[in-house]
Amino acid sequence: MNNIFLLNDYITNGYRLEFVDFIYIISILFGIFTIISRNPIVSVLFLIGLFVNIAGLLILVGYDYIGLSYILVYVGAVSILFLFILMLINIRISELVSETNNDIPLAVITVLLFYFIIGQVIPSNLTDNTIVTSLSNSFSEVYNVQLDNEILNIIDLKQEIAYASSKSWDNSLIEFTHITGIGNIMYTNYSLWLIISSVILLVGMVGAIVITIKQK
């Protein structure tokens, strides 16, 4: 009996569903702290913590090659240069204090709108394997029932997307280190997430340009 548990531990690498939720929560907290901390070095440190966290998640799930290369590339190369440059710049923290409280309602409204629109389109059963996502999906489904029948004929669209993003991909992964399999899944079944993350990245880029541009 003991051997069976050992085998289970060996196959799953100690993976449990609760650990994934734990890592999700910690990474969300780190992401928030990255934005709200005044000291830029502390902010970058939280960013590094976020990277390590996500690498831990990937290793836990079984993509250890991608997780380790995440640490090697993002933590070992990219953010250490970030930190290096930030430490060499002489920043007074008192200069960084600015009034940003006005923007909070705008941010909240934007996020709600984004999630509302996205929630209409994305099928709710895409990632129903964690507590956090099932909670958030339980909210979104209430909206769906009301909206699907009334305004738009979204059901057809949702079915098409649900077919495209179904879990029929699991036989294309022979081994977790096969990057071709992961890329295949990412560009076919999970292309929705790729598009959403690219939209978020675009917003980030535009935001950085807007902040740094000189207003005449």
Partner: peptide, 8 residues
């Protein structure tokens, strides 16, 4: 390699 990268 990854571990020694973090140790820095």
């Amino acid at each position: 390699l990854a571990v020694s990268a973090i140790a820095t």
